[in-house]
Amino acid sequence: MIFNNPDVWEITLLSIKVSGLATLISLLIGLPLGTILALSKFPGRSVLLTFVNTGMALPPVVVGLAVAMALWRSGPLGGLHLIYTPTAIVIAQVIISAPVVTGLSAAALQALDPRLRLQLLGLGASRLQMVFSIWREARLPLLAALMAGFGAVISEVGASMMVGGNIRHQTRVLTTAIVLETNIGDFARAIALGVLLLLITFLINFALTWIQQKGAKR
């Protein structure tokens, strides 16, 4: 059975760790950036928003290519020796996920009544208290942004393959393992890994949806 194979658990754990960390970093970048884009007016805001929205549709394989070129031994960041490491996959996945979290966060916050911010200030909120309050108000669509960001990276294969190299015990994740098993003709194993990936995605999204809907009932 596939589930008795320690390699499978190692790959699964690495997939969760890499994509979980990439999503967390994307949240730390995307939520503040999305907030600035939603609440502030500054020159170049529309251009930045266009870049972010374009970034939401970045093909993972193109991101993989760009990150691989940057991290390659002769590339500008070659001295960091990150190519074919889990860190390289995290970097690529952050580039894929951060625009998704940023764009959807900005849209979620822009959907709130703009007078709510004025009302919060009129109740004596500091700028930071006002921002935390509106994050709380938009918690349901913000959680959806987080789910979309995680979904974009747990399921991508192109970037992980290009910058991670699918090296056994080092950078092999579920999606790259599925490609490998398919290439060598072991469809049963590829399908089992695919089911495992779906199960993990389902469980994580189930947990986030539960939190989201618990908030909706308030």
Binding site: D113, L116, L118, Q119, L123, R136
Partner: peptide, 11 residues
């Protein structure tokens, strides 16, 4: 204390 035209209550 400010009360705006619509009540603008929090969720």
């Amino acid at each position: 204390g400010l009360v705006m035209q619509d009540s603008l209550l929090l969720n």
